[in-house]
Structures are given as structure tokens and as C-alpha cells.
Amino acid sequence: MRLAFIMLFLSATLCAEEIFVEVKGVVCSFCAQGISETVKKRAEVETVSVDIDTGDVTIVTKTGQTLDDTTVEKLIEDAGYEVSSIRRL
């Protein structure tokens, strides 16, 4: 039981987090660049990818780090777009 708890704790603190953001208003590669460059400025972020066809943005954080929903929404708004939904893995 104690081992399972430790494993759970370690996985939560030592793993990178994948954040899937559905964004409204993405129509072109300039949009993708704006979102990508804005999100990448955060020190917690390892990689960002934007699917222009669906408007989905995938953010992978550095190990043991995270971005809360409010921060993600603010970053997308700074780029000029709107968040529809946020999912985490």
C-alpha cells in the first residue's frame, strides 16, 4: 500500500504533463506560430504543437512541472485566440 502511494506520488511529481487545448479561431500557420511562440515563452513548457486542421493545441510540460487552466487560457488569449476546452493526461 505504502509502495503504491509512493509510486503514485512520484509519477505525479516526476512525469511531464500533456495538456490538450481546443482553441477557437485557428485558421492559418500565422495563428499556429502565434500560439506556439506565446506558449513556449513559459519556462514550464517543453514542447507545443498546433494542429491547424482541428485547432487543437498540445502542450507538454517539463518533468515535474505543470500549467494550471487559468495560465493556459491567459496564454491563448495573449496570442489572440479563445479556449474551448482543456484536457489533461
Binding site: K24, G25, V26, V27, G80, E82, S84
Partner: peptide
């Protein structure tokens, strides 16, 4: 200045 923007699911 950006006066107004509409961000839609597949359009802007």
C-alpha cells in the same frame, strides 16, 4: 488597433 475579433470553432 484590433476593434473586434470573433474567434469561431473553424473561423476567425
Amino acid at each position: 488597433a484590433l476593434l473586434k475579433r470573433w474567434n469561431l470553432p473553424s473561423a476567425q
